[in-house]
Amino acid sequence: MQPTRDAHATLVDLLDRVLEKGLVLNADLIINVAGIPLLGVNLRAYLAGIETMLKYGIWQDWDEAQRAIAVRERKQKREEEQTNAPGLEPERYLLSSLDSKIEEKYSCKEEVKI
């Protein structure tokens, strides 16, 4: 099986990555990082939301607040990972988050047709 980069078939993979991932810069230098949840399929809704906020003039504060939260979370995460991760084997580190992922995944799967 060969991997694909077909533009149509991989659009969601692309949006997931470019809009939500990638290297994070040192916070002092950033004027903007789209660290606000931007989901590919909901781009329109998200962007329309921003327009509305701009119109009512609350964007500035909201943006500042979002950025501050994002920076704090990143910093916190970094500290946590630095203090926790080295003590765990990489394998266990991954698996410890696996249980909750599974639970999360199947908890919404209520409809079973027989």
Binding site: V18, L19, G22, L23, I30, I31, V33, A34
Partner: peptide
């Protein structure tokens, strides 16, 4: 190449 996410602008 280390990729950055969309819309990272330095000023």
């Amino acid at each position: 190449v280390i990729p950055l996410g969309f819309d990272t602008i330095l000023e």
